[in-house]
């Protein structure tokens, strides 16, 4: 019942954001329509980082409290995070072609995102390769935590190569340098994508719980 409420709210919010981004937000002077992909790209990147951060926190808590719900949460968040990372990796090159003149470049942030994707795809493969519940939970928790430690190292190592990526526009020490209408759309997109993340997470978490119930019943037979 509750799943419906959150899913519908997220779908409406995302639809509203897209409509506003396409029809009611002005074109950027230099980049033209291509810039509008930011309203998908930036919030998807935010959600991916949020999702993987929560994987690490849930993993650490699991190793401490040994509550299966934390493991299911980490599993769900990692999967949703990979979906959003995939969105980032698809929308980025689509924008890069008209603006940078190339789909892909070995820029620091692109490379970091790509490796994030690899780490958490590895996380999902690891989960799939273990049948024992407790072992699967412990192994993936270890990977979930170490993955979070790895991210700053990858970031630093690829950053020491030069970066082409646009610098932060909203979250920076001085005031956001975005016209009001665009800023509103961007903030709306962050909000609606976070809602979408919560809806996906809830659905995926419920699925994990039901699967565990079915598996436990099958084991008992």
């Amino acid at each position: 019942m509750k799943t419906w409420v959150l899913s519908i709210a997220a779908a409406l919010a995302v639809a509203g954001t897209v409509i506003r981004a396409i029809f009611f937000t002005p074109f950027e002077v230099v980049q033209g329509p291509a810039q509008k992909i930011f309203y998908l790209h930036a919030p998807a990147a935010w959600v991916a980082f949020l999702a993987f951060g929560l994987v690490a926190i849930a993993s650490a808590l699991y190793l401490w409290l040994r509550d299966e719900r934390l493991d299911r949460f980490a599993e769900s968040s990692a999967e949703v995070g990979v979906v959003f990372t995939t969105v980032v990796l698809i929308t980025g090159p689509l924008w890069g072609k008209p603006i940078w003149g190339t789909y892909w470049t070995w820029d620091a942030r692109l490379t970091l995102t790509l490796f994030l994707w690899f780490i958490y795809v590895g996380y999902i493969v690891l989960r799939g390769a273990i049948d024992d519940h407790s072992m699967r939970a412990r192994y993936s928790a270890v990977l979930g935590i170490l993955g979070a430690f790895l991210i700053p190292f990858i970031h630093l190592s690829v950053y020491l190569f030069r970066t082409l990526h646009p610098m932060p526009i909203v979250l920076k020490p001085s005031a956001p340098s975005l016209p009001g209408e665009m800023l509103t759309t961007l903030l709306m997109s962050f909000l609606s994508f976070t809602l979408l993340y919560a809806a996906f997470l809830q659905a995926r978490y419920r699925l994990a719980g039901e699967r565990d119930v079915v598996e436990a019943a099958a084991d008992a037979r």
């Binding site: 590895g122 790895l150 630093l156």
Partner: peptide
């Protein structure tokens, strides 16, 4: 970890290589 999984040694590069990047 890898030796205890169904994929055994196939899993090690997938897990370890991203960590070898830096």
């Amino acid at each position: 970890m890898a030796v205890n999984t169904k994929l055994a040694e196939l899993l090690l590069p997938m897990l370890a290589l991203p960590f070898f990047v830096p």
